[in-house]
Design a protein around this nucleic acid. Structure first.
Length: 414
DNA sequence: TCTGGGGTCCTAGGACCC
DNA sequence: TCTGGGGTCCTAGGACCC
């Protein structure tokens, strides 16, 4: 269960620590020949670009060809995910050594609440500086730290002070800091929302703050309107959440343009299901909903999902579910050509927290069905007939309407 | 500029139940 | 027999983030 912590209000004591160009920095750390030079990680798509490459306009998620055009001198290296995972583990160990109140956001960033450490260690700025020095000395990577009263402001601060910087936004200077920034800096504003806001004449966060929440809701939807309005007005009460676990796990693979046979896609699906089910079991989680994700030659996408009655981490169960969805989508795949196959299992809970022994589950289903049948008998023929119907049910091999108490719910062994 | 792999949250409609 | 409102679950899609 995620636990929450309260933060001292009015004080700038939330840190947002964010590794700079994480993947590219790891590559430069491990290969001295890459230091000081433009580095791009990932060939087809830019996963990360060093600051030397960013100076040419290279950005992550950009196509490889476009990046090469912008920066022909760039050195392109393939990603080494295991090295990034290991570096992340080391950096998070330093986070946890700094304060127990750490909320991981992704592989390369986290929020830290250091409000309780003033007496023990010092002001948040000092703690941030020590943290940066430790990550540099012990892991060999640059990291930026933003400090503010709220998570959102701390995150903007770390983005503004990049690379390799530290910035504290004092509570009395929040509006001056935030309002001149473009709306793209708001959490939740991507290209599409930004275009809608621009069309409404809103370009800066200050301009957005001057609008009514209802007015924004018309443009971007109710939840987003409320969210953006609150952020622009410096309201962000979200506490640091410790011990949050992800609620879905997925895997996918891009296929390129060539047509794949049904057998090939079946095999790919089996590989994805096996990988995800293993990760589920490794994390002692079980899930209930399977989503099949497809992308076609024209880059349109569809999803197909199914929810099963009981959570599981069983490869066989999920493979059967996935095959059913793939069969149903097969005409679409034949028509439009599949360029990406992905799966996600969601609705995750801790293993053992929601399972019943299978016989008990079946008995519950049968009892429920018979209760329904007997209710119908009662409606049509009166309650006097119910006993006789139950008797007939017993003679014909059906279960009695009320089963003996199955006892306490027990988690499945193993 | 043709696009990787891993996630989160929100919306909207339909089914179903009370 | 017709009718309403509210709540929950499921499916599908969209936007966004790193």
């Amino acid at each position: 269960m995620a636990s929450m912590t309260t933060t001292g209000c009015g004080e700038a004591s939330i840190l947002h620590a964010d590794l700079d160009s994480f993947f590219a920095s790891v590559e430069q750390r491990d290969d001295p020949g890459l230091r000081g030079r433009p580095v791009i990680v990932g060939a087809g798509v830019v996963l990360a670009a060093s600051y030397e490459a960013k100076a040419y306009g290279v950005r992550s998620a950009m196509g490889g060809r476009a990046a090469a055009r912008l920066c022909p001198a760039a050195i392109v290296v393939p990603p080494r995910f295991s090295a990034y995972v290991e570096a992340s583990r080391q950096v998070f160990a330093i986070f946890h050594d700094t304060t127990p109140l750490v909320e991981g956001v992704s592989i390369d960033e986290a929020f830290l609440d250091v409000g309780g450490l003033r007496r023990l260690v010092g002001e948040p700025e000092l703690i941030g500086a020590l943290l940066r020095a430790r990550v540099r000395a012990e892991v060999g990577l640059p990291i930026s730290v933003g400090i503010a009263r709220t998570k959102y402001l701390a995150k903007v601060a770390s983005a503004v002070c990049k690379p390799d910087g530290l910035l504290r936004v004092p509570p009395e200077g929040e509006e001056d800091f935030l309002h001149p920034l473009p709306v793209e800096r708001l959490w939740g504003v991507g290209a599409i929302t930004a275009a809608k806001l621009h069309a409404d004449g809103i370009r800066t966060i200050g301009e957005l703050a001057s609008r009514e929440e209802q007015e924004l809701a018309v443009t971007v939807g109710r939840a987003a309107g409320r969210h953006l309005h609150a952020l622009a007005h410096l309201r962000d009460p979200r506490p640091i959440e410790v011990g949050r676990r992800r609620s879905s796990i997925g895997s996918q693979c891009a296929l390129g343009r060539g047509r794949r046979s049904r057998a090939e896609l079946d095999a790919l699906l089996a590989g994805l299901v096996d990988r995800v089910a293993r990760r589920l079991r490794g994390g002692e989680r079980i899930g209930r909903t399977f989503t099949l994700r497809l992308r076609f030659d024209d880059f349109t996408r569809v999803t197909r999902s199914a929810t099963i009655p009981r959570s599981t981490a069983s490869t066989a169960t999920w493979l059967e579910t996935g095959r059913g969805l793939l069969s149903a989508a097969w005409p679409l795949i034949e028509e439009r050509g599949c360029t990406l196959l992905g799966i996600t299992i969601s609705g995750l809970v801790e293993a053992g927290s929601e399972q019943l022994e299978l016989p008990i589950f079946v008995a519950e289903q049968q009892a429920a069905a018979l209760d329904v049948a007997l209710d119908q008998v009662r409606d049509r023929f009166g309650s006097a007939s119910v006993g006789r119907a139950a008797l007939v049910g017993r003679r014909t091999g059906l279960e009695m309407p009320t089963l003996p108490d199955p006892g306490p719910r027990t988690p499945r062994a193993g």
